Computed example of a mutant assay.
Amino acid sequence: MKSYMAKPSDVERKWFVIDAEGKVLGRLATQIAKILMGKHKPTYTPHVDTGDFVVVINADKVVLTGNKLEDKYYKYYTGYPGGLKQIQYKKLMQTKPEFVIYHAVKGMLPKNRLGRRMIKRLKVYRGPEHKHQAQKPEKLDI
């Protein structure tokens, strides 16, 4: 018996809408990453991009457990000497809540050209409105 290997031409993509209101950030990000990779499908193939599109709404209402709002920092380096910058997650959630979900999901995807293609299918919106009604996305409860 031969193993099934999906071909890029055989992949059919669906659209899903996920409401992030009241959801824990890490648990939400793992489910989104699973859908983007295509691991929820029986036709999953590791070297082929078999994932679906994900639209996340209400990103500003996602929850961080414990004291992470106060204690956790997003760190990045500008490239200049002494250029390490830190932003507290409390401030990041007020200014750019879309980036918080995007960054969490991106860290759970493969670090290669396949992962860079997968993250492009993630659409994150701050409020309850999104502009992908024409694709007829299915509501997904997590």
Rank of each mutant, 00 (worst) to 15 (best):
R13P: 00
K120E: 14
R27N: 09
G107K: 14
D49G: 01
H130G: 10
P128E: 13
P110D: 11
L28I: 05
N67R: 15
K136W: 00
K68F: 06
Q133Y: 07
H132R: 11
L84C: 09
A59N: 07
K72Q: 14
I18R: 06
I32T: 01
V55Q: 02
M1H: 12
I57M: 01
A20R: 08
K85S: 12
K91R: 13
H132T: 01
G83H: 12
L92Q: 12
E138H: 04
E98G: 04
K139Q: 09
E70D: 15
N67F: 09
D141M: 06
P137A: 08
M118Y: 03
K85T: 08
V55L: 02
Y125F: 15
F53N: 12
K68T: 02
E138D: 06
L69A: 10
I101L: 11
Q133F: 07
G66C: 10
G38P: 00
V48P: 01
K2Q: 14
K72E: 13
T50W: 01
D19L: 06
D19E: 05
D60V: 00
V100H: 06
T95P: 00
R117A: 15
G107Q: 11
S9F: 09
T43Y: 04
I142S: 05
Y89F: 15
E129I: 12
Y77W: 14
G22E: 03
M93T: 06
K136H: 12
K34G: 13
G83Y: 08
P8M: 02
G107V: 04
T95D: 15
A104V: 10
M118W: 01
K23G: 03
I142Y: 10
K2F: 09
V100M: 11
Y125L: 04
T78V: 09
P8L: 01
D52E: 05
K61M: 13
L64E: 02
A59K: 03
L109I: 09
K90F: 11
K120Q: 14
P81E: 12
M118I: 03
S3E: 13
V100R: 04
K139W: 12
Y44I: 04
L64I: 12
Q135S: 07
F99P: 02
A59T: 06
I87G: 07
V56I: 14
Y89C: 10
G66E: 07
Y44P: 02
V54Q: 00
L92H: 07
I142T: 09
Q31H: 11
K68Q: 14
I32S: 04
G79E: 08
A33N: 05
V17Q: 05
V63W: 02
L92D: 04
R121M: 10
A59F: 03
D49K: 00
I119C: 13
E12V: 15
Y44G: 03
R13I: 00
K96V: 02
E70I: 13
T45C: 08
Q135E: 14
G22H: 08
Y4T: 00
V105E: 03
P42G: 13
F16R: 10
A134E: 15
I35H: 02
Y125E: 10
E129M: 13
F99M: 14
L25A: 08
K14P: 00
D10P: 00
Y44L: 03
E21C: 11
Y76M: 07
P8Y: 02
P8D: 05
A20I: 07
K90V: 01
V105T: 07
F16H: 15
K120C: 04
I32Y: 00
H130Y: 12
I119G: 12
G38T: 03
V24Q: 13
D71M: 11
M1Y: 10
M108N: 05
K106N: 13
Q94N: 15
